[in-house]
């Protein structure tokens, strides 16, 4: 996990990485994101947990339910579904805007890998009047290869126990 801070140059590069990602997400250019910014060994994970008392000593369940538990091919299949032109919810298209904030970057035991923490806000507008806000945090492992960053692992953490949007079929 996080150890040392990184150089201002690398920090700037990570910020640019996230802003570009937010722009591609907001334009639903998911395939460009996948091909340019995602490592083939990606694990994209959004686990859920139930509300427990602080004193609860029970271990987490053996099989943790995860809204996303995707590898590269799983993500590719989700994107391919959107590209069929048969997703009625997206026709007329929804409008989506991604904001990324609170970015911290740290070095790891592996020279070419970095841990980062960030927060995000997604505003999704569907139909004429429907609007949902999804706010969360991300714990990422980034990989630097030939000067380019890629996303190697992402854990998405949401505060909503009951998801207020009708689905979370968008990337965060």
């Amino acid at each position: 996990m996080a150890s040392a801070s990184v150089s201002p140059d690398l920090h700037q590069q990570v910020l640019q990485f996230y802003y570009r990602e937010a722009r591609l997400f907001s334009g639903k250019q998911y395939r460009q994101w996948l091909e340019a910014m995602v490592d083939r060994e990606i694990h994209y994970w959004l686990p859920i947990a139930d509300l427990r008392y602080r004193a609860d000593r029970r271990p987490p369940p053996e099989f943790v339910p995860s809204i996303y538990d995707d590898n590269y091919d799983d993500l590719e299949e989700r994107i391919r579904r959107l590209e069929t032109g048969l997703v009625w919810m997206e026709d007329p298209p929804s409008r989506i805007r991604h904001l990324t904030t609170n970015v911290e970057v740290y070095g790891t035991d592996v020279a070419s890998e970095f841990d980062s923490f960030s927060n995000f806000l997604v505003c999704r507008n569907t139909e004429d009047t429907d609007e949902t806000l999804t706010i969360g945090a991300r714990e990422d492992r980034l990989r630097l290869r030939d000067g380019n960053l890629t996303l190697l692992r992402r854990k998405v953490i949401l505060g909503q126990r009951v998801i207020k949007d009708t689905n979370l079929y968008f990337l965060m």
């Binding site: 959004l46 339910p65 995860s66 809204i67 299949e77 997703v87 689905n167």
Partner: peptide
Amino acid sequence: QKEAIRTFGTAGTFESDDAVN
């Protein structure tokens, strides 16, 4: 579990189709 949630979970490939209707 992974396949069931991938299709009929909160971001499921099938589940996401139903809400609009």
